[in-house]
Write a protein that binds this DNA or RNA. Structure first.
Lengths: 203, 203, 203, 203
DNA sequence: TATGAATGAGATTTCATTCAT
DNA sequence: AATGAATGAAATCTCATTCAT
């Protein structure tokens, strides 16, 4: 794409933001180019001036997400069964929630099977795989041999993603803080036991 | 719809099955009525004899799923931090995986925001809520006061659903048995500690 | 068509009556074979056992109407500018109203331009022409040379038909007796002056 | 619908005109959207850009007709039993014939029971009612107490409409001028007597 | 004689994309 | 750089008619 002046960059941005918002509301397939241009106060002609089709706009959004997710994954430090480790974990999960709030629709759509077939959908899978791999490294450092670290990491990612999704789309009524607390707790517990205590059976 | 004779019931069944299959392959939105009738060896006219549109066929499928999920949820016994309890848990998760294999596309689509707006989408949310509620009961029996049992249950459902989804759509390479093992382990660990270490008993 | 047993004749009659009723409600084109068979408590198969298509059922109805209209037209005696002549006219118009109540939809549809093109539509025109011709004869006996008797007759038929139509479909609120009275008065007046009096201008 | 530029307004107009023409030729129900766009040299897509379906185009036409009929009704002066009054009446009837030539199909369809049920059909009835009401006023000024002026007015409207209809659809062979002459004569005669003889003045 | 099921041609409608200004 | 209008391929949906029992 040719170089853009300030006005052009601004229009492009407006379209991207509108896209993100409509995708979030209606999902990828139900989104009409018309919805996007209306929200961006632009015209069809303008849309095709910046993107050659709907998928390309989506791809552009997806690249933004990918880079942010990458950064986020890199900031996860070693997992530790100490109070400090626990609160670090919580803080990190909170950051994930922030990210999801902005880009959830794209993340979700990207990993949807409906686009999952196309060569482009692969990128979505990679996004997930990449993100999981980073967690994997941390999980592997602490997990017992009994569980396969890779799958554990994936399960945790799955939980993170879905719970945020339910919360975001308000399919279930969850308080955001309670959600983050619980995600931290469950993650922590599944790695270290709920407080690192020794086993004991219930009477 | 009027009562159906044997032939009619059979045709309707064929359409439902074809629908489930195509939804699983292409996703809800990318599915064309044409795909369904071709797979069912029926004509367009026949389709509209039984369902007034794609959504109605989907709804019918969804009702089937709902009832099966209900049954499944009811079979989950008390969670126990014993070897028996653990293998019961694993068996139950395996059943969930079976169900997901057949009906995953419907479950997933149903809980997707894309249909989630319509009055009908509510049913999907209810499905999830219901299912989670059953788990909630079991989780509440064993969880510590620190974690909100409802959210824990939801997190577990989220993990169950997503991991099965990743596996089914082959977005990540997981061995089915490894997946089930790990789901059991993570669930068990998050409730009782990673090696059977139970959380502090409730006051 | 083959000879019919009692049951067959009965079924055929049920279909004809249902047809007349649905045509009256929805008009010819908007009438579905399905509407007819439902009302007649019969099946599609049965319909095509008796009529080869919708038009043929209509044609059968139309033939019934035609013969009744013919009979009615024949009963119109000479028009006379006497009280007796006037009440005879009124009685005749009342009979027309009766006929229209039963068969109005068919009459109307038949003369609709929408079917008017087909070779069959010609019959409808003929119906009208025939009926008008009978009136023509009577009008010609009494009308002045100034007016073309044929057109006067047609105008009267037009008025008869339309007013009954408006009344029947309740498009305007008219009392049946008032309608018949007025039709008689207007017809009488347009032929003889309102009471046969000599001209006088209003002050 | 958004504001239209010159080109848009032009296209919309072309579609309306084409619609009026096809409706006139084939009638409302037999008219296909395809017929309209072909005649207007436009595409299906374009049609749905301006009207959401056939009915809406019809409604737009109907509104035009309504306003023209309104105007026409307003131009009818007092009815007078003088040579001048008579020729004024004739001139007015001629204008009605002009209007009917252009919009007859719409008028007819609109007052047909086939669309008469819907909330929109009400407008058609109102059209008729309104138009009749205007005539009513004039008729009431001159009619005898014996006839209900309202019904007389309606009968006249009925005659006007139907006779024009027969003429337009060529269901009967009438010369246009003869038709107008006769309509004037019959109307005049039914109000003032066949040769200018006025009915008894009102008490 | 009666029927419920099936058909498919033809209609309507949508919407991503292109065009002319 | 921006736009409103136009397009047409592809989808949905309808319904008169036929078929098998």
């Amino acid at each position: 794409m040719r170089e853009l002046r300030a006005r052009g960059r601004n229009t492009r941005r407006k379209l991207l933001d509108a896209g993100a918002q409509v995708f979030a509301t209606k999902g990828y397939h139900a989104t009409r180019v018309d919805d996007i241009v209306k929200l961006a106060h632009a015209s069809h002609g303008t849309f095709y001036l910046y993107f050659s089709n709907k998928e390309e706009l989506f791809r552009a959004l997806a690249e933004e997400v990918a880079s942010e997710m990458h950064e986020l994954a890199a900031t996860l430090g070693p997992l530790r069964s100490t109070p400090d480790g626990r609160s670090e974990l919580r803080a990190w999960i909170e950051q994930f929630a922030d990210l999801y709030e902005r880009y959830g629709a794209v993340i979700r759509t990207w990993t949807e099977a409906e686009i999952g077939r196309s060569e482009f959908g692969k990128l979505g899978t990679d996004l997930l795989t990449q993100f999981t791999r980073e967690l994997h490294r941390r999980v592997a450092e602490v997990t017992t041999s009994e569980m396969e670290a890779g799958v554990v990491a994936l399960a945790l990612v799955a939980m993170l993603e879905r719970l945020n999704y339910y919360a975001l789309t308000q399919q279930v009524r969850i308080d955001r803080d309670a959600m983050i607390d619980t995600l931290a707790s469950v993650t922590y517990a599944s790695l270290f036991g709920s407080d690192g205590c020794a086993p004991s059976t219930r009477s």
